[in-house]
Structure formats: structure tokens, C-alpha cells
């Protein structure tokens, strides 16, 4: 086992620890926990048995294991990026809605311009 593999495995242990802690504290839903768990587990297996990656690459017709890993990584990153973008956009809309609603409610409360009832 080389240094790179050891580093990654060490990193994975930390990640698992944090993931489990988060799901216990209910900061992460169980469904999301499962997805991340499987994802990181797959990374661990492939790091320990790199030949598996090459086999998969051959089967899928891509050739090199590293290439396959990079492709998958890019796809996952793009997907999460897209989801995040949408989330933010959605949040923006909600905040706008809230700000506008509060503004109108407050204005309605003191809606009489002083011309109508001179103070």
C-alpha cells in the first residue's frame, strides 16, 4: 500500500466519523447519510483495490481507470453544483417574498398619508 492510499484512507476515516456524528445529531437526514456513506465507501474500496477501477474502465470502454474516476467525479460535481444553484435561487425567491410581504404589511398598518389625517 503506498502513501497516497494511506492518506486517502485516513481522510475517509475522518469523513466517516463526521458523517456518523452528523446523522446522530440529526444534522443530516438518513437518506442523505446513506448516499454519502455509499459514495465514500466506494471511494475507499477503489483506493484499496485500484485494479477494480481499471476493470470497470475496460468494461465500460473508457480504457484507463483514472479516466473513468475523473469522468464520474466531474459528473457528480456538476450535478451537485446544479442542485446548489437551484437551491440558492429558490432561497433568494423565498427571501424576496418575505421581505416584500413584511414591507406591505408594515405599510398597511400605517397606511394613512398625513394629508388625509393631519397630525
Amino acid at each position: 500500500m503506498n502513501l497516497f492510499q494511506l492518506l486517502i484512507i485516513g481522510f475517509l476515516f475522518i469523513t466517516f466519523y463526521r458523517l456518523i456524528k452528523k446523522v446522530r445529531d440529526r444534522q443530516v437526514s438518513q437518506g442523505l447519510f446513506l448516499i454519502w456513506f455509499v459514495l465514500w465507501l466506494a471511494v475507499g474500496v477503489l483506493v484499496i483495490f485500484p485494479s477494480l477501477m481499471s476493470r470497470m474502465a475496460e468494461l465500460s470502454g473508457i480504457g484507463r481507470g483514472v479516466d473513468l474516476a475523473i469522468y464520474i467525479a466531474i459528473i457528480i460535481l456538476l450535478y451537485t453544483q446544479f442542485k446548489l444553484y437551484h437551491r440558492l435561487e429558490e432561497q433568494d425567491k423565498r427571501i424576496s417574498h418575505l421581505v416584500r410581504k413584511i414591507a406591505i404589511n408594515n405599510a398597511q398598518k400605517n397606511a394613512n398619508p398625513s394629508r388625509d389625517n393631519p397630525a
Binding site: I95, S96, V99, R100, A103, A107, P113
Partner: peptide, 11 residues
């Protein structure tokens, strides 16, 4: 004598 509606954040 005007109506004023105030956004608490700049939108």
C-alpha cells in the same frame, strides 16, 4: 404626504 413601503433588504 406619501405612502412609504420599506424593504428591509435591498432586493
Amino acid at each position: 404626504p406619501v405612502h412609504i413601503v420599506t424593504h428591509s433588504l435591498n432586493l
